[in-house]
Amino acid sequence: MDVFMKGLSKAKEGVVAAAEKTKQGVAEAAGKTKEGVLYVGSKTKEGVVHGVATVAEKTKEQVTNVGGAVVTGVTAVAQKTVEGAGSIAAATGFVKKDQLGKNEEGAPQEGILEDMPVDPDNEAYEMPSEEGYQDYEPEA
């Protein structure tokens, strides 16, 4: 019985440690998101679009440190934060509304985080759909 109880105690310690790591990862992701939003706020009209992409990228980098179902929630929060940063930029006159959601080359930025393969159960990952990809044929 002692062996059984000791095993359960060790398992509990492992769960607590994993929860603490997840909590730490979420806190880091939130900190990076805040950094990115402050970065966007300090940019001029020309830099705002690039700044919004930076927020998304920093958040995406930190999301990889967070495991399990938390990833889905962090990704949703990050996307809403990026959308909010863009709205703030438009409201303050840093950028025109028609410039939001495009990178410096004018290509749409939507789907940055949505296409990231995420499995809350950590069982399997699927690649994003290939609808947006084109076949590449090298020139002879």
Results as ranks from 00 to 15, higher is better:
G86W: 14
A76H: 10
V71N: 04
L100H: 07
T44M: 14
Y39V: 01
S9A: 13
V71P: 02
E114N: 08
D121C: 07
V63D: 01
E105D: 14
A29M: 07
A69W: 11
E110R: 08
E137F: 10
F4Q: 00
P120R: 12
S42N: 09
E130D: 07
V3C: 04
L113V: 10
Q79K: 12
N65V: 10
V82F: 03
A56S: 05
G36H: 04
E20S: 09
K23G: 09
K97Y: 13
G84N: 07
V55F: 04
E104I: 09
D135P: 08
D121A: 09
Y125V: 07
L113Y: 15
N122C: 07
E57H: 07
D115F: 04
A76P: 03
P117A: 11
V48S: 00
Y136W: 07
V82R: 12
E83D: 05
E20C: 07
M5H: 15
S87R: 05
E46H: 05
G47Y: 14
E126D: 04
A91C: 07
N122P: 05
T33C: 10
V15L: 15
G41S: 05
G14M: 14
G68W: 15
K23A: 13
L8N: 00
V55R: 01
A90L: 05
N122I: 10
K45M: 14
V118S: 10
Q62C: 15
M127A: 12
G67R: 05
K102C: 15
G14F: 14
G86Y: 10
F4G: 00
I88N: 02
G111Q: 13
G14E: 11
G73W: 13
G31P: 00
G101W: 10
E130T: 02
E61R: 07
K12D: 00
G41N: 04
A124W: 07
V74L: 09
S42V: 05
V66I: 10
T81D: 02
A30S: 04
E61A: 06
Q79S: 04
G106N: 03
G132C: 05
P138C: 04
T59P: 01
V74R: 00
E137G: 05
A17H: 11
T75P: 01
E131L: 10
D121E: 09
E137H: 06
T54L: 14
A107L: 11
Q24W: 15
N103Q: 13
A30Q: 01
Q99L: 07
E13G: 05
T92M: 04
E13R: 01
T75S: 05
Q134P: 07
E28G: 02
V16H: 03
A30V: 11
L100T: 10
E123T: 07
G106Y: 14
K45S: 07
E35P: 01
E123P: 09
A107H: 15
K23L: 13
A53P: 02
K43N: 02
G31W: 01
N65Y: 09
E13K: 02
T92S: 14
A29N: 01
E61S: 05
G51V: 14
V70Q: 04
T59M: 15
K102H: 03
A140R: 12
K60V: 15
Y125A: 15
N122G: 04
T54H: 05
V37Y: 13
A69G: 06
E20V: 14
K21T: 03
T33P: 00
E35V: 11
Q62F: 14
Q109H: 04
G7Y: 15
F4D: 00
E28W: 14
V74M: 11
T81M: 10
A124S: 10
K43G: 01
Y125D: 13
T22C: 15
T44C: 10
V70Y: 11
G25K: 12
D135Q: 05
T72S: 11
L113H: 12
K34C: 10
S129F: 04
P120I: 01
Y133R: 12
D115I: 09
A30E: 00
L38A: 12
K96T: 12
M127Q: 11
A53N: 02
V71I: 07
E126K: 13
V49P: 02
K34Y: 13
Y125H: 13
D135Y: 04
E130N: 09
A89T: 06
D2S: 06
N122Q: 03
Q24E: 06
T92V: 09
P128M: 03
K97A: 05
T72H: 09
S42H: 14
A53S: 02
V74Q: 01
T92H: 12
S9H: 10
T59Y: 14
A19M: 03
A27T: 11
Y39H: 08
G68T: 10
L100S: 11
T81P: 01
K80H: 09
A29F: 15
A11T: 03
G68R: 15
T72R: 10
V52P: 01
A85M: 08
A85T: 07
A27V: 13
V16P: 00
S42W: 08
P120N: 05
V74E: 01
A76S: 09
T33M: 05
V82K: 08
E35A: 11
L100Q: 03
T54I: 07
K21P: 00
L100M: 15
L113N: 04
K80S: 06
A78I: 04
G14D: 01
V48G: 01
V95L: 13
G25V: 10
G67P: 06
V52Y: 13
Y125R: 09
I112F: 08
K23R: 10
V49H: 05
N65R: 09
N103L: 10
D2I: 05
D119P: 13
E126L: 13
M116Q: 03
V74Y: 10
G47P: 02
Q134F: 05
S129N: 05
S87W: 13
G47E: 03
E57D: 09
G84Y: 14
A78T: 08
S42P: 01
G31H: 15
T44S: 01
L38N: 03
E114I: 13
T33Y: 15
T44H: 01
G73D: 02
V55M: 13
V15S: 00
A53Q: 10
K12F: 07
A53V: 09
E35I: 09
V70F: 01
D2M: 09
V63S: 02
A91R: 13
G41H: 08
V95C: 03
A29L: 14
E57M: 11
K43E: 00
T81C: 10
D119G: 13
T44E: 00
V70G: 01
E13H: 04
K10H: 02
G47F: 14
A27D: 02
V16C: 12
K60E: 02
A85C: 04
V16G: 03
G47A: 13
M1P: 15
Y39A: 09
G132Y: 11
K60H: 13
E61I: 08
A76F: 10
K58P: 01
Q134I: 12
G41V: 14
E57T: 07
A27S: 07
T92P: 06
K10F: 14
P120Y: 04
N103M: 05
E28L: 11
A19T: 10
T59R: 01
V74D: 15
S129W: 01
M5S: 05
V118F: 12
E104R: 14
I112V: 06
A17Y: 08
A27C: 08
P128Q: 06
P138A: 05
F94Y: 12
E83Y: 08
K102L: 14
L100P: 13
F94L: 09
K45G: 10
G132F: 08
N103K: 12
K60Q: 04
K45T: 02
E110M: 03
T92A: 08
L38I: 02
F4L: 10
G41A: 12
Y133H: 08
V71S: 05
K80M: 14
A30T: 08
A27G: 07
E61H: 10
P138I: 08
K96I: 11
Y136N: 11
M5E: 01
S87E: 12
E137K: 11
D115C: 08
T44R: 01
Q79N: 06
D2K: 07
M127H: 07
G14L: 09
A76Q: 05
E130R: 03
K34S: 08
K10P: 00
G86I: 15
T92L: 13
Q99M: 12
P128Y: 04
T33E: 00
M1Y: 15
K6Y: 15
M127P: 07
K21E: 00
M127C: 10
Y136D: 00
T33G: 02
E104V: 15
G86R: 09
V63T: 04
V49A: 06
G36N: 08
Y136S: 03
A76Y: 13
